[in-house]
Amino acid sequence: MRPRTPTAEESAISRLVLWNIDLTLLDVGQVMRAAYAEAFEKVTGEPLVYLTSSAGRTDSEMFFEFCARNYVDLEPDTDTLADFLAALETAFGARHEQLLAKGRVMPGAAASLAAVASMPDTVQTVVSGSTRANATAKLVAFGLDTHLNLAVGGFGSVNYPKSSLIQSIRLHATGEGGRAYTEEETVFVTGSAPDVRAALIGGATPLAVLNGTATEGQLREAGAQMVLPDLSDPRAVMTAVHRATSR
């Protein structure tokens, strides 16, 4: 379906549209879990027996929770987190050929990215819990990087929560006239309740989709006022983004 032509009113609005990757645009959870296990055991010497939810978390946050849940004590004055992230990129990169076989694109993700990209003065990027290298590899594998400016994205390569990543992107990505984007011009598309809360803290309007395990009630309770069933209707996605940035 061809995206509709934006109206004159829409053309006058500057937008920063942030996308969560996992379970919003695509799902490579099976491959990612195997990479986590390999990297964790390589760095700590202990098997990764107990996992944790990745919803709303960065890889940095997950590593420390992995350690707590698996009773691994970190030695002081060591850069174990950096070692884990490096090992994780190596382990995930080695499984690159498994992404298409064991992963999937969420319905309508590619078409919705293209549709939002057709809206004038709109910048799209990602806020991902994965490191920059792993997040990029996921998107490129499924051809979803075309309409995204990954140079201004936020990634789990740094030890900051997603709310801080959202705020940093909003303040440092330049909108019309070289100014920072306001909270009213920024949207975060996600299927995770913790991400919805991160959006509100970081200064973005959450646009929730029912792609993940969260229910509509959980997403609304977290603070989402707009909830779409999925991304299969690009026109509905464009309309929701417009409404979020024209209040």
Results as ranks from 00 to 15, higher is better:
P47K: 05
F84S: 10
V72C: 09
D83S: 14
I169A: 03
A114S: 14
D79A: 15
A224H: 01
I169L: 03
F142H: 08
M119N: 02
M32P: 00
D233G: 02
T44A: 07
A82I: 04
T78Y: 02
S14T: 15
R220L: 01
T24C: 07
V209E: 05
L81Y: 09
S60P: 03
T182C: 06
A8M: 14
A137L: 13
M32R: 12
L148W: 07
H147D: 14
L148V: 01
D230E: 04
G143P: 09
P76V: 13
V209T: 13
R104K: 14
Q30E: 11
Y50T: 15
P76T: 14
A137C: 04
A86I: 09
S128A: 12
T52C: 13
T239K: 13
T24E: 01
D77H: 15
Q167N: 14
A87Y: 07
R4A: 15
A35R: 08
G191N: 04
A82H: 10
Y36G: 01
A236S: 12
N159D: 15
T190F: 02
A141F: 00
T182E: 10
E176K: 15
I201C: 06
N70T: 11
L150Q: 10
E185F: 00
T58N: 08
G202Y: 05
T215M: 06
T125P: 08
G178N: 03
G153N: 04
A204I: 10
G56R: 07
L26N: 08
A173Y: 02
H172A: 10
D145R: 01
I13F: 07
L165R: 12
A111C: 04
T213D: 02
G103S: 08
L18I: 11
I21Y: 05
E75D: 11
D230K: 06
K102P: 00
R95P: 00
A151G: 09
A193S: 14
A199K: 13
G156W: 05
R243G: 15
R170V: 12
T5L: 12
T90I: 14
N20H: 12
L148S: 01
P161T: 11
G217A: 02
L207V: 15
P161C: 08
L139F: 02
V49I: 15
D27L: 03
R197W: 00
E41G: 09
R235L: 11
A115M: 05
P107H: 08
V241H: 01
F64L: 04
A34L: 13
T90Q: 13
S112E: 05
E176R: 15
L18F: 02
A204S: 05
N70H: 10
M1W: 11
L144W: 02
E97A: 13
S164I: 04
E10M: 04
A34T: 13
S246E: 09
G129A: 07
T78G: 07
R57Y: 02
S130F: 11
G203C: 06
R2Y: 02
L85H: 07
R104G: 01
V123L: 14
L74F: 08
V126K: 00
S118H: 10
G175H: 13
D59Y: 00
D27E: 12
L85P: 12
L171W: 01
D22H: 13
Q167F: 01
G156K: 05
